[in-house]
Amino acid sequence: MLEAKLDAASQLKKIVEAIRDMLGECNIECNETGLALQSLDKSHIVLVSLLLGSDGFSEYRCDRGVTLGLNINSLATVLRCANNDDILTLRSEDRANELILTFEDSKADRISEFNLRLMDIDQEYLAIPETEYAATVVMSAAVLQRTLRDLSALSEAVTIEIDKEGIRFSAEGDLGKGSTHFKPCVDMENAENSINITLSEPVSLSFNLQYFSNITKASSLSSTVTLQMTAGMPAQIEYKLPSGHVRYYFAPKIED
């Protein structure tokens, strides 16, 4: 059986909000090391890979592997019934067809319980090889979100160029064009505002901004984001969690 407790329901609410726009139904695999999810969006442009290590829970127990087949929007609907600071417990018996969620407000002596029906989901998995990326950029998650939001007013696509001078975001549409360039920098006072670039060769890739905007909804999970890119390959975008990560693999536009 699975029994996993979080001190604040907001932790799971934020994670679900960061992935729900891209995913419909998917399996969450639970074992003694934690919870994991890998799922493709239906257009096969973004893959979401979530890892929640058992250390990230205040209590965690999973004696044997459990697969939770869930509709992510149904999970989001139920989580809306939890207050952000409620203690949240996930529970599922072996071979059960439901996930039990309890939301507990210890001060108000309130306990709410919801049973979410589980499904058998025949899911496709992608084999992602270990890759050395040509460019790795660590930057503020909020700054990335803001930059992409600004450029989405111009075009449906953004081009990202990374070289030793920095990282440049640009877009061009009917009304004109725009770009934002960030140089590598170290901000001693606010470390999350630093921009760190590791590069083996310069890279330029273009991406759909609507999908990118959905990905950056994970900005509430982490102050920084790690972008990894290699020419002609999907990008890897990672938001670190206290024990785990939300990672996206994002297919670029195909250049001629």
């Binding site: 973004v46 992608l126 084999a127 992602i128 696509a157 999907p234 693999y249 297919a251 536009k253 195909i254």
Partner: peptide
């Protein structure tokens, strides 16, 4: 406008 790539063009489905 450049066509959109698919992850299944890059990675194997298992």
């Amino acid at each position: 406008v450049a066509p959109q790539g698919r992850l299944t063009d890059f990675f194997k489905v298992s």
